[in-house]
Nucleic acid binder design. Sequence first.
DNA 1: CCGACGTCCTGCTAGC
DNA 2: TGCTAGCAGGACGTCG
Length: 300
Amino acid sequence: MPELPEVETVVRDLRPLVVGQRVEAIWVGRKKLRRTWQRAWTASILGTTVEAVRRRGKWIVIALNSGGRIVVHLGMTGQLTVKPSNEPRPTHTHVVFGLASDVQLRFRDARRFGSVEWFPDEETVHAYLARKLGPEPTDLDAAEFRQSIRRTGRALKAVLLDQAVVAGVGNIYADESLHRAGLHPERCGVTVTDTEADRLREAMATVVAEAIEHRGSTIRDYVGGAGQRGGYQTRFRVYGRGGEGCRACGAAIEVIRVAGRSSHFCPACQPADTREERATTARGQSRIIHRPTAPEPRRT
DNA sequence: CCGACGTCCTGCTAGC
DNA sequence: TGCTAGCAGGACGTCG
């Protein structure tokens, strides 16, 4: 599933292929995506030229010389690739932009959790994304991150998946970061020390940077902007390695459900906080029922 | 107001 | 071998 490193790889791949290209044709399929394509968007985009391709969190922003912006989210199975126009269109292709040099920018998404939409200007896109997203992992302020963690009773895993806390981290890199930081995914936010929070912030930055170097991770569907698979999946320390040995200590990696997501961790490197009490819900998910430290009083 | 949970969607896999 | 139930999860709406 595309997270920050995969989206960054797509953006880097697309940049030399689409910047400077004119959008000469647009085709939109009938199947509904997360956002419904508006007829007016086609007219607004046709004839404009791509000026830049950027990423913010897991979102891709394609800047046009008209000031308009095409904004893409890959969801679970989305692919945004440049292919020769004469190459057959694979199934689940939903949007195609015909570019000047006989190539097409194609959006393909089997599960249709992704989206393609248009905004009239940079300010509107900025407001749209700023409402949802916190800082990038590399821009995360130490004090701010400590506070984000400590002001909540949620499990650390849930905090990392919250795009308003840190943008771009998903299930894979949350698990990998927690392992590097030696923190249990269910660890309750309020009990996390400054040192632990700092370790987690640094672990996230490291994991994400390493994954980008390896062009992201391909579990099943993910491909880069020219259709190539990623290479980081062979370096996972915990994700998808349930039952296998921890690369650090050899203990068997465990899989549990936290915040509605599968969570992989090493019980030896990432010990549970024994001061916490938990109960298991009917659906097999564990809930913290007692916290060792009371949350700070909420300010009004 | 925070947090938990249901919903969307289809391809693949485990299990019979 | 062939079928099917269940699982995978990012964003977001809803509900307690």
